[in-house]
Each structure stands twice: as C-alpha cells, then as structure tokens.
Nucleic acid binder design. Structure first.
Lengths: 211, 211
DNA sequence: ACCCGTTTTAAACAAGTGTTTAAATAAACA
DNA sequence: TGTTTATTTAAACACTTGTTTAAAACGGGT
C-alpha cells in the first residue's frame, strides 16, 4: 500500500462517515477499520481528527470553488462586453448547477455534498468555521455579481435573499437522497434534473420578487 | 426541590445544550451539572438520553403544532365560507409566522427553534425520526391546503416547492442568530421582523412562480 | 410516631473516545 | 549492498461516555 493510497482511503471513508453519521458520531476506530488502515494512521497522516475534517473539505471544495468562480466570472465578463447587466438567473445557475451536478462527478462526491450542505448550520463551531473559511470568497463573488445584476434591490435585502437561497440549496444538498415525504399520501419525487430546474425557478423567483 | 422542578430543569438545560452543542456532543454529565441535578436523574425521570430528546421536542412541538394547525384551518375555512380559494400567501403565513415568532414566546424557545430547525437534516436517524413524527401531520395540512389554493400547479411540483420552503425556513430557524456575513464586506443584517417579512416575500414568490 | 412510595445520591460498571509511544517493517537512495 | 528515511503496527494512555445499582433522604398519610 503506497503512501497516497492510505491517505486517500482515509479521506474517502471519512467523507462517507462524516456525511452519513456526522463528524462527532464518527469514531476513528470505525473509520480506520472501514478504510482498512491502522488506527494511528489518521494522526500520523493528518495530525488530528479535526485536521482530517479540514482535509476532507478542502479536497473537493477547492476544485468546486474554482468551477463556480470561473463560471460566475464568465457571466459578468460577457455582460460587460455587451455593455449590459449580467442576468441574475445566469449568475445563480453558475453557482447552483455546478454544486448540485458535483454529486455525480465521482463516487464519494455525493457524500461530500451532503456534508457541506449541513455545515452552515452545524452545531459545532469547528465544522462551521472550517466550511465558511473555504466558502466565503465564493459567496462574496456571487453577492457582488448579484449586486451588479439587480441594482434596484437594496444591498441588505439582496443579502438576506442570498441567505435564503443558501438555505434552500443546503437543504436540497443534504436531504435530496432522504425520503421524508415518500408515503402514499404525498406525490412521487422528481428526477434529479427536474429537481435542479425546479430549484432554479424557485430561487430565481424569490430573488427577483417585487415589493 | 419538587418533582416537576427537577424534570423541567433538565428539559430546559437539555433544550439549550442540544441546540447549542448538538445532541451527540452533549454529555449527560455536563447537562446534569448545568441543571444542578444528579447524574442519574435523567435516566430516572426520562429513561434514557434519547427519550429525553423526545420529551424536549414534544414539550414545545405539540403546542406549536396546535397553533399552526388552528391558523391554517382558519384560512381554509374562511375561504370556503366565501366560496373562494384560500390564498397561498395566507396559508404560508399561518405556518411560518407562528413558527418564527415562537422564538420570543419564552426564554428557551429560541434554542428550541434552533434545535428543530436542524432536525430535518440531522445525520442521526433518531433525531430526524423523532422530529418528523411530530411534524409530518402539520406538513400534511399545509400541503393539502396549498393544493387547494393553487390547483393549477401540479402536485409533484407543489411538493418540491414546499420542501424548498422548509429548507429556507429551517435555515432561518437555526442560523438567524449566527453571523456568517457580519463583516464590513457585507451589509448589516435586518431586524427580526423585517427578516420575517422578507422571508414571506421570498417563499411566496418562489411558491407561486410561473413557468 | 411510624410507614411507604417517591426521589436523590454517590459509586461503580462496561464500553468507547482521541491521541501517543516505541518497536517493527517497508521504501528510497547511496 | 547498507543506511537512512517514511510508514505501519499493536499496545498503552488518560479520559469520557450512557447506564445501573443499592443505600440514603424526603414527603404525605394515618
């Protein structure tokens, strides 16, 4: 077993267990057993359980942020070339769609999305801080983009609406695989793609609401 | 110290700690120390830590559900008397406003709202199940009310939109006291009442979106 | 005063926690 | 090849977890 083999096996299993059982409910003994590595490997390769969480988040957040930032900048840049305002809907798409499509990008990405979808409201300060440090610059890009796209909406209103959008998105990220309402009393759930389109319609309408 | 004194002191502290530290991150030793009762009191009065969680949730969920159900039924009943469709916005208000105003109803209610706001996406099956069992009938009432109010929207679309609303609401419930974006780069947050009104505007627009 | 059911208490239980250690092994380079 | 890093291993460490136990204290009724 090579060096990076052990590290990525730990990262993969940590991602899965942190997402499915929660960070605090995951013990290093269960984690290392599932990964097929020695108990001490986590502390040797990552330092501590918390630093492992940070590595789990960084591994996929950095590439995901890169994608979202690029797409958002494309939208604003193309608008400037046409001397027009960027469309709020396109900015939202540039942020939301890559995030949700990220689930299909690799086997563990689905768990990763669940994990970060829960991070904003996690009771543990460590988890929240770890996530926010990675996410804030991207949030900021979205916010300034939206300010440019919707100059008629006051900034403080725009901010809460963006927070509402983050709430909706987080909820979809960490509950889309659950089945609260999967009972005969409720209609069938939508397909993943239809869900994304419905989410876009919902948040765009909310963002641009009059009044 | 009377019987109910010990029980309510445990309930109050459990509510606070489960909300602020999380269910699994709260130890019965810290909890009973904070409550000023003996360690064994939890198991004596409630049976187990999980049954304590259930009691914490039931204590306030049952009255809150009563309020929301009554208000929602009032809306549909008044509409029927006028031979008109109930207004979706009023149904939403009947569900959302009592929920968020519940925070000010008593000292611990703020923590309670944080706790149940996180329950839908909690990694622990026990927590989710405990909450959903209590919440599902009220969700169902809202859903059938909305079906009546918006007959032109297909049921499966209506359901996802209601889930989006729950996501937004949950996020507001458990993060409104946090301060992600409280930095000079972002505008000042709104007052609690303004936040509620903005939330109503947002979710109503999303719910009734065309297309 | 006594009795009896309820409640509180301190102690112990068995199991689990993240982390550290020092010895054993493997890999890399000379 | 031998030597030096890098990695893996099993064991121990110190501490925390939820729960149970049996004795003590309390409170109301007769």
């Amino acid at each position: 077993m090579t060096h990076s083999d052990t590290k990525t096996r730990i990262l993969d299993c940590a991602e899965q267990m942190f997402a499915r059982e929660g960070f605090h409910n995951t013990s290093l003994r269960n984690l290392t057993t599932l990964a097929g590595v020695n108990l001490a490997a986590v502390n040797y390769h990552f330092g501590s359980k918390e630093e492992l969480l940070q590595s789990v988040m960084e591994r996929r957040m950095l590439p995901l942020n890169e994608i979202r930032q690029t797409k958002m900048r494309e939208v604003t840049k193309q608008a400037r070339e046409l001397d027009a305002l960027p469309a709020a809907a396109e900015l939202l798409r540039a942020f939301v769609v890559p995030t949700l499509e990220f689930k299909n990008s690799s086997p563990g990405a689905r768990d990763f999305i669940t994990l970060i979808g829960r991070s904003l409201s996690d009771p543990d300060e460590t988890v929240r801080h770890c996530f926010l440090t990675l996410a804030l610059p991207t949030f900021k890009t979205l916010f300034t983009g939206l300010e440019e796209a919707l100059p008629e909406i006051p900034s403080e209103i725009l901010l809460v609406r963006m927070q509402f959008i983050m709430g909706t998105l987080s909820h979809v990220m960490c509950t889309s695989h659950q089945h609260f309402f999967h009972s005969p009393e409720f209609p069938q759930p939508l397909t993943p793609n239809a869900l994304i389109e419905q989410l876009m319609i919902f948040i765009q309408a909310g963002l641009e609401a009059a009044r």
